[in-house]
Amino acid sequence: MTDSHSHVAHQFDDLAQQQDASNLGMWAFLATEVLFFGGMFAAYAVYRTLYYDAFVAGSQHMDVLLGAINTAVLLLSSLTVALGVHEVKRGNNAGLTRYLLLTITLGLTFLVIKGFEYSHKYADGLIPGVHFTLDGPEHVGLYFILYFVMTGFHALHMIVGVGIMTAMVIMTRRGRFSPEYHNPIEVSGLYWHFVDIVWIFLYPLFYLIRVHP
């Protein structure tokens, strides 16, 4: 038995079929995720159309700089994931571990910054239903509800992503991956990139509604 053969589950004929299947499985799951966030984007689109002024007023309370730093952090983390996949294909498991750890660090940085933003919002009384003291236009609460729900679900996905990447580090340390068998890394990478894409849209939609003078 070759080494790669032992990774093939009984229902598959060979490794290629197994890898194709798990890649496709992740893409199918991501289609679900697109529509999951899609529901929230639909709500956003409707309320922004109906209550544009309230959205402008709400967005004035966003910290554009912190949001920008987070965007850069996430874009970088996507790059490190892509490079990690690149390294494992070349058999460089040390490089893979390095990039995975870098990705985790960037992910945690994102979450910490997000945490600071949330606590500022709490201090400023901008969390509807919890602590809301803003005296703005009538529907300004909707903006903040959507902000917390959408970034909240995104952050939840980030936490899951960090967990997955940690598991990948452990599996790499145990020598599970090789140029022939590294499918879990690829599939986890797909998930991470998706979460990044969600943020690519969230940032301009919430932070940059009307920043020009």
Partner: peptide, 15 residues
């Protein structure tokens, strides 16, 4: 699907 891939330069360029 596996194998192949882009060169490191392309990843940096895209980043």
């Amino acid at each position: 699907m596996t194998g192949g891939g882009f060169s490191r330069r392309i990843y940096y360029a895209v980043g």
